[in-house]
Design a protein around this nucleic acid. Sequence first.
RNA 1: GACCCUAUCGUCCAGUGGCCUAGGACAACGGCCUUUCAAGCCGUGAACACGGGUUCGAAUCCCGUUAGGGUCGCCA
Length: 438
Amino acid sequence: MSQKPRVRFAPSPTGYLHVGGARTALFNWLYARHTGGTFVLRVEDTDDKRNTEEAVQVIYDGLRWLGLDWDEGPLVGGERGPYFQSQRNAIYERYLEQLRAAGHLYEDGGAVRFRSPRQTVQVVDIVCGTIDFDLSNPETHPDMTIRRPDGSWIFHFVNVVDDIEMGITHVIRGEDHLSNTPKHVELYNAFGVRPPIFAHIPLILKKDGKGKMSKRDEGSAVASYITDGYAPEAVRNYLCLLGWSPKDNREKIDIAEVVQLFDLDKINRGNAAFDLEKCAWLSGEYFREMDPARFRELGREALVRAGVDLARFDAAYVDAALDTCRGKVRLLKELPAYAGFYFRDERIMDEAARTKFLTPEALPRLAAMREALGALTTFDAAAIEGVLKPLAAQYGVKLGAFLQPLRVAVTGSAAGPSLYHLLEILGRERVLRLCADV
RNA sequence: GACCCUAUCGUCCAGUGGCCUAGGACAACGGCCUUUCAAGCCGUGAACACGGGUUCGAAUCCCGUUAGGGUCGCCA
């Protein structure tokens, strides 16, 4: 029987999925896909105070949004379940008895502790190398508690038991667990089981590099990328590049290729600060090259989420409007401000744009443009361009400067989609009305 | 404080003894193009933490210092 790797992502349902956790999941997933192994999702809900249905849902949603599918775990099942620690009590009792019988345990204040053998423990880690930890001093390395007086379990114990039971071959997790690892190895030894191979991946630091990214930091929750409307493949791509690289200076790289190139020994050892700007840039890149139909779908969802009533407009209109935004926005949350004018009867005028462009000398030109547009037999982008360009020449004004007042009059903003196309989509009637009303 | 990890532009990454007067990307700045804003194109500024070794030769190897991060729970 060939030993295909079995890896796992074991989040605790805290109500949010941290980007660091997401990257841990991603690296596990990549390794499983690269090797043809199995990616297991296990929910570490021993602390039931924060274990809620919604909290677990957040994990599923985040992983699915990033396209990280698991082979075993909640919702999909598997041979080694259950995949919630809260349902594995009988297993833990059995393992506890094994340790007790072998004399490894003692009671202290009602809690159960594991008596450390007080030796030097070697941790074999693919990323950090082989490290020797001296656990001989009880002052600096007190015996770990594995069960509370109320019968609930402590992380170190259940984590190791589950990894044994689930046949986990490679433990890929955040470097914040590195110092815990010798304790885990002691447990493996006590169970008479060979420890898995460890790979502690570097942490994701705040933008200023001071400390690991935590709950309060912008961009720490995967949910925030979903609501801000990043392209999911861009976030996944960006996460791949934090601590790993294709080595050829590429920034945008297809996930299938990452799967092919990825390996644990190629992971960097240094922590990395998270650069939201670069992630947003990548998002724009992905939207630009995205299948138009998919962009429309995502754009539609974002607009509806922002409270835009798309039901008032027919599908073709919405599609056309969205098409003019593709490649122009980096995040979907920019859409309401960028393209909101398509879906509003009342124009929202940017006052700075008005004073800058709707000047006394611009108004007669605007009137001329309005007249020219009104006389058009076909009101499409090409025809509009065809009539506006000569008009600008006639006035002897540079095209860009000449047209800008029209844009402001129609959209209320100095920035937006291609003017000719936006006019076509809006339709002659609305354009003429907006032009008259300045 | 103890232990562990790390150390190249502001940030991410490339560089594994000579091809490096250090390369790419984001960000910044300047220019071009242009129906706005973007995009695109061109360009500018910007780094091997410090000190010792090893070597003919070090960003690359070794030691120390310093700095940063992590862990030291009856959280996970």
